[in-house]
């Protein structure tokens, strides 16, 4: 009997932790496929020199424990801060943060926006599932108005935070937003953010509605939701989730470039008075 062939993503995964603990149809797996396809196309076979940092939440479980690389699973909201520490301590490492909307846009937004302002040399992937999935679907800063959740039982009434637009207004180098169905665009964005734009703050938001607390509550199957998103998420158009596409792509000096310039001033005579 012929051995079963392995899915392309599995060379980047710790086999022993599969299957994932994600709900059936959870879009986290699709985001992982896009990321791994990007690595594959970049010719990265082994993720040595890459450090994945995540906080708390479903999407924070994408790297930890699944990705076969150095992974740090941190406190709720603090992934960007820990990642900053890692990057500054070892500037030659590629540091990638993966987190959800609760983690990065609510409790950890301060770190996110300041890392963006600093143009910190990090790639941050925000998997926006529109709710707090792990803790049973409470409303998050990105929950659409009117949506019923356990904490907005009469329909969400707070205005939505457009995270990608906010980050685009900072000094960040690269900002893009894709739906999970824009698979090729998402993959290409990740590729770009690791190659052409390999310095400064790179931010990619992925709209990936929670299969359990958004999609199932809408009475849809994962397959139906994908088909719906394919109609809605046309690149470079306004959607209910904000503008889809590359919002910003620059190659300004990153934090480390600036820091080393600063160090030069410190070591070449500037007394710092």
């Amino acid at each position: 009997m012929r051995c079963l062939r392995k899915h392309f993503s599995r060379k980047y995964l710790r086999e022993e932790v599969l299957p994932t603990p994600f709900c059936p149809g959870c879009f986290n797996g699709v985001v992982m496929n896009a990321m791994f396809k990007a690595f594959e196309e970049l010719g990265v076979e082994r993720l040595k020199g890459y450090v994945f940092v995540s906080g708390i939440g479903c999407s924070s479980w994408i790297p930890s424990p699944h990705i076969k690389a150095d992974t740090i699973h941190t406190l709720h909201g603090r992934a960007v801060a820990v990642a900053t520490g890692v990057k500054l301590a070892k500037p030659n490492l590629n540091v990638i943060v993966i987190g959800g909307d609760g983690d990065l846009a609510a409790i950890g937004f301060n770190h996110l926006v300041h890392a963006a302002r600093r143009n910190m040399d990090l790639l941050v992937i925000l998997v926006n599932n529109l709710v707090y999935g792990m803790t049973r679907g409470q409303a998050s800063p990105t929950t659409p108005e009117g949506m019923r959740t356990v904490t907005t039982p009469y329909g969400a009434y707070e205005p939505v935070m457009d995270v990608a637009e906010l980050i685009a207004r900072t000094n960040a180098n690269y900002v893009a937003r894709w739906c999970v169905v824009n698979f090729n665009q998402l993959k290409n964005s990740i590729k770009e953010a690791l190659s052409k734009y390999s310095r400064g703050f790179r931010f990619i938001e992925v709209i990936a509605p929670c299969i359990t607390y958004v999609v199932r509550y809408e009475g849809k199957t994962p397959g139906q939701k994908i088909k719906e998103l394919m109609k809605v998420c046309r690149p470079n158009t306004e959607t209910p989730y904000g503008r889809i596409g590359i919002l910003k792509a620059e190659d300004k000096p990153g934090y480390l470039d600036r820091y080393f310039e600063y160090v030069k001033r410190a070591t070449e005579g500037d007394k710092g008075e």
Binding site: V51, V53, I72, T74, L75, G77, R78, A81, V82, A83, T84, G85, V86, K87, L88, A89, K90, L93, N110, H111, H114
Partner: peptide, 21 residues
């Protein structure tokens, strides 16, 4: 680095320590 708050400071320090510094 002058961090944005103390939460960032301690977490950055943990990140750097884990990196071996």
């Amino acid at each position: 680095i002058q961090s944005e708050d103390e939460l960032a400071a301690i977490n950055m320090v943990v990140g750097a320590a884990l990196a071996g510094v």
